[in-house]
């Protein structure tokens, strides 16, 4: 009786699991179908005659290496920037007393609540003035700091007892050494997970890059994919799905390697 009741509760969970995964399975499967087959056997998950034609066509139409490099380079810049600024800021909040500390912290947190529309026009003008339109550096530049990172790092640092820090200070151990020899090793798991999340989010980013990157040679993967989707319904879906399948490889690999770290850090970001 009890077991049956338990199984009933699993039903909605399994349905959600299927909704989460099935679209991706369909996408990968369709990327190995010809356009004709994708229309004829619309529900089949395993292609009748698997073909790589979509991938070779794609390779002729766009410079995949270039797209991947642009995306990778932008995501790396953003990730390193956010980690650097976030770690420094969290360190200051954790180990120093200073005026208006609470207010400054709240101001940082408040940036999460700023809609991108309010900064997009001035930031676009600044990037244009700096001659960084059509450059992934222009996309990365306004995004080199992130309050979520500061919040999670601070949370982890709070697990290091303040007394440890005080005794090191009394012994006149320089900050550089405390930071590199003590704080960084303890923070390694959250740096990995927060870094992974920053990288994945930036890899997938769409809105701000569409404003800055207009020239096709400067495109990142999401922008290239958007070019394959037509709102009038003439999309060649197997082709778009091939490009999507290429795009999701990197986040999936990162997730497979760091899955436990990533899920833990999300948990930490919410706990106050």
């Amino acid at each position: 009786m009890n077991r049956k009741k338990n199984a009933l509760w699993h039903l909605p969970l399994m349905i959600i699991g299927i909704i989460a995964l099935l679209p991706v399975v369909f996408m990968i499967s369709n990327s190995f179908k010809t356009l004709q087959e994708s229309y004829q056997s619309i529900l089949s998950l395993i292609p009748n005659k698997p073909t790589t034609i979509n991938y070779t066509t794609l390779n002729h139409q766009v410079n995949l290496a270039r797209l991947a490099w642009n995306t990778f380079f932008m995501a790396t810049l953003v990730t390193l920037g956010k980690l650097f600024t976030g770690l420094l800021a969290a360190y200051a909040f954790r180990y120093y007393q200073f005026k208006h500390k609470n207010l400054i912290y709240l101001l940082f947190v408040a940036t999460i609540f700023v809609p991108f529309t309010i900064v997009m026009i001035p930031n676009y003008l600044v990037i244009a003035k700096l001659n960084l339109l059509n450059s992934v550096i222009g996309v990365a530049l306004p995004q080199l700091c992130d309050a979520t990172g500061i919040m999670i790092f601070l949370k982890t640092m709070e697990k290091i007892p303040g007394s440890l820090f005080d005794s090191l200070k009394i012994d006149d151990i320089p900050n550089r050494r405390i930071f590199f020899n003590i704080v960084l090793p303890i923070l390694k798991p959250s740096i990995i997970s927060v870094g992974a999340m920053f990288f994945i989010n930036s890899w997938n980013e769409y809105v701000w890059p569409t404003l800055i990157l207009k020239d096709k040679s400067s495109f990142t993967l999401p922008l290239a994919l958007q070019n394959y989707i037509s709102s009038e319904g003439g999309t060649n879906f197997p082709l778009a799905m091939a490009l999507s399948s290429i795009m999701i490889v990197v986040p999936l690999i990162i997730y497979l390697i760091f899955q436990r770290y990533i899920l833990n850090s999300i948990s930490n970001s919410g706990l106050k």
Binding site: L13, I16, G17, A20, L21, P23, V24, F26, M27, N30, I200, W203, N204, E205, Y206, L221, P222, L225, Q226, Y228, I229, T235, F237, A240, M241, S244, M247, I248, P251, L252, I254, Y255, Q259, I262, L263
Partner: peptide, 22 residues
């Protein structure tokens, strides 16, 4: 369930928009 439910968060909304419009 945690691991599976989280997987779609890894993908760009452009990918999601494309799949669902199909």
């Amino acid at each position: 369930y945690k691991i599976i439910f989280f997987i779609p968060s890894l993908f760009s909304l452009v990918v999601g928009a494309m799949i669902f419009s199909w």
